[in-house]
C-alpha cells in the first residue's frame, strides 16, 4: 500500500534537514507504530505524507498504491485514501462540525466521481459513527474544534477518519492530551477501523497507546532515520530502557 524509499526531506524555509533516508513499506491490514524521541522527525514524516508545503523532499520517493504520491496535491492524496489525524487539530470558527464533515465527505466523493450523499444517508452515517465515539449531537453542532477539550478534539479526528473511510490512516500522537478514559474511547474507535484493506501508521512517544492499539510492526525513528524495527515487544523494551541506546546507535 505504502512504499517509502530513501526519503530525504528538509524544512523549505531554512533548509534544515529532518529526514535522512527513510525506508518503510506498509501492507494492507498492517498497523505500524513509529516511536522516537522529540525531534526525531516523526511529525515531519506525517506532514510530508499528507503534502504540507512547509517541507521539501530532496531525495527518494513515496508510492501510494503504486502511484507517485509526491506528484499529488494534498486534497488529491486525501481523495486517494490518505487520512492524517492531527496532533493539534485546527479550529474552524463558525463552521459546524456537521457541516465540515459533509463538505469533506462530498468533496472526496466528487473527486472520485461519485454522487454527493443525500441528507438522510449522511445523517445516518454520522449518527452511527458518532455514537461509537461518544460524540453528542450538541458537539456536532458546535464549530469544529473551537472550544473543544483535548479529548473532544481527538474524538472529532477519529470521527472524521471513520466517516471518510481512508485506506491509509496516519495518527500523529493521537494519545497526547488524553486521560485514560478518553484514550480508551479513541483507541476503541481506531481498533474498529482496523480491516484487511486498511493500513495504519501510529506515531507516538509512549508505549501506553500501543497497549490499546496493538501494532504489527514497531519502528524506532531517530535523527531522521529508522534505526530499529521489530514487533510489539520492541515498544515494551523502549518503555523500559528509553531511547538512549538507539540514539547512540544512530550517532
Amino acid at each position: 500500500m505504502l512504499e517509502i524509499k530513501n526519503l530525504h526531506a528538509r524544512i523549505a524555509e531554512d533548509e534544515t534537514e529532518i529526514l535522512r533516508g527513510i525506508d518503510l513499506t506498509v501492507k494492507p491490514g498492517e498497523v505500524h507504530a513509529i516511536m522516537g524521541p522529540n525531534g526525531s522527525g516523526k511529525s515531519t514524516l506525517s506532514y510530508i505524507l499528507a503534502g504540507k508545503e512547509d517541507y521539501e523532499v530532496t531525495e527518494g520517493e513515496i508510492l501510494f498504491n503504486g502511484e507517485n504520491m509526491l506528484d499529488m496535491e494534498p486534497d488529491e492524496r486525501a481523495a486517494a485514501g490518505l487520512f492524517l489525524a492531527f496532533q493539534y487539530p485546527i479550529e474552524i470558527p463558525g463552521v459546524a462540525t456537521m457541516e465540515f464533515l459533509k463538505t469533506a465527505m462530498n468533496a472526496q466523493r466528487k473527486a472520485r466521481g461519485e454522487d454527493a450523499l443525500s441528507i438522510p444517508d449522511f445523517m445516518k452515517r454520522v449518527k452511527e459513527a458518532a455514537a461509537h465515539l461518544n460524540v453528542s449531537m450538541d458537539m456536532l453542532k458546535r464549530p469544529l474544534n473551537v472550544g473543544f477539550s483535548g479529548g473532544e478534539k481527538k474524538r472529532a479526528e477519529i470521527l472524521q477518519m471513520s466517516l471518510l473511510e481512508p485506506k491509509l490512516c496516519v495518527l500523529d500522537e493521537t494519545d497526547s492530551g488524553l486521560d485514560i478514559d478518553a484514550l480508551r474511547v479513541v483507541s476503541d474507535g481506531v481498533n474498529k477501523l482496523r480491516s484487511p484493506n486498511r493500513a495504519m501508521i501510529v506515531i507516538t512517544h509512549y508505549q501506553r497507546l500501543l497497549d490499546h492499539i496493538v501494532p504489527d510492526v514497531v519502528h524506532v525513528l531517530s535523527k531522521g532515520k529508522i534505526v530499529k524495527t521489530g514487533d510489539k515487544d520492541l515498544a515494551l523494551e523502549l518503555e523500559k530502557n528509553g531511547y538512549a541506546d538507539f540514539i547512540d546507535a544512530a550517532a
Binding site: 504540507k52 494534498p74 486534497d75 492524496r77 481523495a79 470558527p93 463558525g94 463552521v95 463538505t103 464549530p143
Partner: peptide, 27 residues
C-alpha cells in the same frame, strides 16, 4: 491561516472549497 487551509485540504477539499467553507463560517 496556512494551517486551516492544509487541514481542509487534507480532508479532501480543494482550495476554492476550503476558502468557501472558512469564509462562510466567518460571515
Amino acid at each position: 491561516s496556512d494551517d486551516q487551509m492544509f487541514y481542509c485540504l487534507q480532508r479532501g477539499m480543494n482550495e476554492e472549497e476550503a476558502v468557501a467553507l472558512i469564509v462562510n463560517g466567518f460571515v
